[in-house]
């Protein structure tokens, strides 16, 4: 019994240790991949068609879901906060709450989550399929860098499109908040927008955009890394896709917190 316990204890210890080593290795691999993609941005012009295609995928193909999520995020935040504020007769200030929440946190976060689920997962699956079907090997044999050919266009497209989609999410979320403020909290549009403009600080905008830029790098970097490391056929592609989504979610949350802490932690 005790030998069995010791055996399982060391087994657990070994498993945890291996997971830590794997995580460090994957982090290093992803960072190197992003640095290499940065190096290949010198080829942005020659890869403009692929970059535009990836931008199209990130924007147009997620447009509907981003719109719905943005609108309802603003509406939910307005309703939940507005009800509490109304108890203190402060509902007129709902515009300040909505714009601060959307620009600083919810806009970049919700956009990143949607793009991870739709674009990041597709990236991991596409590159993973190319890896297991030897297309990535074929690129290497043609002396074509898979980072230049596959990763760089996706990283550049996401680094551009996540901030753009975030601005759109912020705008639509603010509109959604306004609808609730107007129809459910009886705050007029004029009052709502005067408070929105009052709290629309430059710092909130640029920290939000910086966050979304970094989220774009994280989503594309993690997804491409997972795709390039896929093994074992369809099963491996499924695993790579799942891991890309899970890791991107976690990284968006954790890095998002630290960016907020850096810019707002001492206020």
């Amino acid at each position: 019994m005790s030998i069995k316990f010791i055996h399982s204890f060391f087994g657990l210890f070994g498993y945890v240790g291996q997971r830590i080593v794997d995580t460090i290795e994957l982090t290093g691999y992803t960072l190197v991949l992003l640095l290499q993609a940065g190096f290949y941005t010198k080829n942005v012009f020659s890869k403009r068609r692929e970059i535009l295609k990836q931008m199209y995928i990130a924007a147009v193909k997620t447009f509907f879901v981003v719109s719905v999520v943005a609108l309802f995020t603003g509406m939910i935040v307005a309703l939940q906060t507005g009800i509490e504020m109304k108890a203190f007769k402060q509902e007129a200030l709902i515009g300040n709450v909505i714009i601060a929440t959307m620009t600083r946190e919810m806009g970049p976060f919700m956009t990143a989550i949607i793009l991870t689920a739709s674009v990041g997962s597709a990236m991991a699956a596409e590159i993973g399929t190319m890896t297991v079907s030897e297309e990535v090997d074929a690129l290497q044999m043609m002396s074509i860098s898979p980072v230049k050919f596959l990763v760089m266009p996706r990283v550049v497209a996401m680094a551009i499109m996540v901030p753009i989609m975030t601005v759109y999410t912020n705008a639509l979320g603010t509109l959604g908040g306004g609808v609730v403020a107007n129809y459910q909290l009886q705050v007029s549009w004029e009052v709502y927008y005067s408070h929105v403009l009052e709290s629309l600080h430059f710092k909130a905008v640029y920290t939000g955009l910086l966050k979304s830029f970094i989220f774009g790098l994280i989503i594309s970097g993690v997804s491409c890394a997972q795709g390039l490391r896929a093994t074992n056929g369809a099963l491996g592609v499924g695993k790579a896709t799942r891991e890309a989504v899970v890791i991107s979610f976690l990284m968006v949350l954790i890095i998002g917190y630290f960016i907020t802490a850096v810019f707002y932690g001492k206020e």
Binding site: S133, A138, L139
Partner: peptide
Amino acid sequence: KMGVLFQSGALIN
């Protein structure tokens, strides 16, 4: 100096 014919052809899809 090399060319490779992979089992599936490995064309970019």
